[in-house]
Simulated scan of single mutants.
Amino acid sequence: MNVVQLTTGDFVAAMFSLDFVDGGFRREAVERIHRGAIDEWVSALTGSGLFSNRAVANVVRAWRSDPHILLDSLLTEADPVTAEHYRAAWGELDAASSYTVAA
């Protein structure tokens, strides 16, 4: 028997991914995640009752440290074209923020 070890990230992807990609590409969502405005996902995670306070704190710490982790989780169920749109938008935001920092 194979045992699959699920991580909190797996559960987060399962909770949010289908809803996130269901409505198609939403640039404003990428922009919010990119700038670290993740409160809506933190609230949903906390309110689910599925995770311990420690697990939520660990996920939130990871998201705040690297918001791209949240985007990757949200894109788990995305089709390749939708995922590429989101990743391209993320790249544009990275480039714009690098330009702003350099200027």
Results as ranks from 00 to 15, higher is better:
1 M>Q: 08
2 N>D: 11
2 N>G: 08
4 V>L: 14
5 Q>N: 13
5 Q>S: 12
6 L>S: 11
7 T>M: 11
8 T>N: 12
8 T>P: 03
9 G>W: 02
9 G>A: 09
12 V>C: 05
12 V>M: 02
14 A>S: 13
16 F>T: 05
16 F>Q: 02
19 D>Y: 12
20 F>L: 10
20 F>A: 01
21 V>A: 04
23 G>T: 11
24 G>L: 03
25 F>K: 04
25 F>H: 10
27 R>H: 07
28 E>F: 13
29 A>R: 08
29 A>W: 04
30 V>F: 00
30 V>S: 06
30 V>Q: 00
30 V>D: 00
31 E>V: 09
31 E>P: 03
34 H>A: 12
35 R>F: 11
36 G>D: 05
38 I>P: 00
39 D>F: 05
39 D>S: 15
39 D>P: 11
40 E>Q: 15
40 E>H: 14
40 E>P: 15
41 W>S: 08
41 W>T: 05
42 V>F: 11
42 V>N: 05
43 S>R: 14
43 S>V: 14
44 A>K: 09
44 A>F: 11
44 A>V: 05
45 L>R: 00
46 T>S: 15
46 T>N: 11
46 T>C: 09
48 S>M: 14
49 G>V: 10
50 L>Q: 07
50 L>C: 11
51 F>H: 00
51 F>T: 00
51 F>S: 01
52 S>D: 06
52 S>C: 04
52 S>A: 13
56 V>I: 15
57 A>I: 04
57 A>W: 02
57 A>T: 07
59 V>L: 07
60 V>C: 12
61 R>C: 10
61 R>H: 14
62 A>M: 13
64 R>Y: 06
65 S>Y: 10
67 P>E: 01
67 P>N: 09
69 I>R: 08
69 I>G: 00
69 I>A: 07
70 L>V: 04
70 L>K: 03
71 L>I: 02
71 L>C: 02
72 D>P: 01
73 S>D: 06
75 L>S: 03
76 T>M: 11
77 E>P: 03
78 A>R: 02
78 A>H: 03
80 P>A: 11
80 P>Y: 10
81 V>W: 14
82 T>R: 07
82 T>Y: 02
83 A>D: 08
84 E>C: 10
85 H>L: 08
85 H>Y: 10
85 H>I: 02
86 Y>K: 02
86 Y>M: 05
87 R>D: 10
88 A>T: 11
88 A>W: 04
90 W>M: 06
90 W>E: 09
90 W>T: 05
91 G>D: 13
92 E>V: 02
92 E>I: 08
92 E>W: 05
93 L>R: 01
94 D>G: 00
95 A>L: 05
95 A>N: 05
95 A>C: 04
95 A>P: 01
98 S>R: 07
98 S>H: 06
99 Y>Q: 10
99 Y>G: 00
100 T>V: 12
102 A>L: 03
102 A>V: 00
